[in-house]
Structures are given as C-alpha cells and as structure tokens.
Design a protein around this nucleic acid. Structure first.
Length: 167
DNA sequence: ACCCCGATCGTA
DNA sequence: ACGATCGGGGTT
C-alpha cells in the first residue's frame, strides 16, 4: 500500500481524474475508494471556477498540485476537489463519489463532504503529506465510463466526468 | 449597497 | 419539477 506522491497530481487533469477512479481515500481513518470524478481545467474551461481569473475563493486551484480545494455551494453544501497540474495553472478534480469500506456509498459531492465532515477548514490541506487525508494506491483499478459533467450550464458538452462501472 | 446565481440535494 | 439557503463576485 503506497501513498500517492505529488507527481501523480502534477499531470494533465483528465489523466488524473481517470487514474483516481478506484484509488483508496482515507479521511481521519475512515477509508473508501473513489468511484466518481470530474475534471475542471484552466481558464479556458467555462465551467471551471478559475474561468474568470483568480479570487480569494479559488486561489488554491492556482497553487501547487496535491492540495484540497474545498468550496461552499448552494448555501448548504461543500465540495472537495484535488488540485492538479503545475503551480500557476488552475485546475482540479472534483470528487463526486466514494465507496466506503463499511459498504456505504457516498454518492454526490455535497453528501460526501457532509458525511465525512469536510468543510472550508480543509481548503488548502495537503493530500500528499498531511495527516487528515491519505491517498493510497493498492494496485486496484476499476473500469470506468466517461460522460458529461453534472450540474453545469457552460461546457456541458465535454465528457469530463468519470465513474466506476461497478462498485 | 444590491442582486444574481451556483461543480447540490431532498421532497413532490 | 422545485424550493431551501447563503456566500462570492460582478455591477451600480
């Protein structure tokens, strides 16, 4: 069981989003496997929060890869992203689904953060060398399918959502 | 100071 | 199909 290194995230976002499917993810010891992701890639992606430049909210996306970008949405939910690509290029992978080892399936980015206790206090946390979050590669790869991203109006034609075929 | 709307979710 | 709920960011 080897922990992911920063080079894993310092790559093209679509590659990272696909390779994250099946990866083991632990939050304060609660372990599961990532089942669904979406890619948000740079200022040319109209659905990316960075599309209109850097702000206080999206600043983490502009920084080094391997960090958690957590934002508050719809007045009641948080969403967890993992920052990708080189320092200075704003991109990230949204985590949309996790299958926990106890059998529960956390389906949806808002529910997932609510049930794992992830909120704005986790924005900027290091996923590579931090204590609270661990990402581990145990060699298991799940087959996945690509499709359009959920809940966006602009950029809805791009097949940048990936989800495991079988949980 | 004001207004709009969003990478969602539960209920109808 | 729709309402809840509120912070961020653009506009006046």
């Amino acid at each position: 069981m080897t922990r992911l290194v920063r080079a894993f995230f310092d790559r093209p976002t679509l590659e990272v989003a696909r390779d994250l499917i099946g990866v083991r993810f632990c939050v304060d010891g609660v372990a599961g496997r990532i089942t669904e992701t979406e890619a948000y890639i740079g200022q040319d992606d109209p659905a990316c929060h960075a599309a209109r430049g850097q702000t206080a909210r999206n600043a983490v996306m502009f920084g080094p890869s391997g960090m958690a970008y957590v934002y508050f949405i719809y007045g009641m939910y948080h969403c967890l992203n993992m920052v990708t690509e080189r320092d200075g290029f704003p991109a990230a992978v949204l985590v949309r689904g996790i299958k926990l080892e106890d059998g529960r399936h956390l389906d949806g980015p808002g529910k997932l953060c609510r049930d794992l206790g992830i909120d704005k206090a986790d924005n900027g946390a290091d996923l590579i060398s931090g204590e609270r979050f661990r990402l581990e590669d145990d060699g298991i790869r799940l087959p996945f399918i690509a499709g359009p991203r959920v809940g966006i109006s602009k950029g809805a034609d791009l097949p940048w959502r990936f989800r495991a075929r079988i949980l």
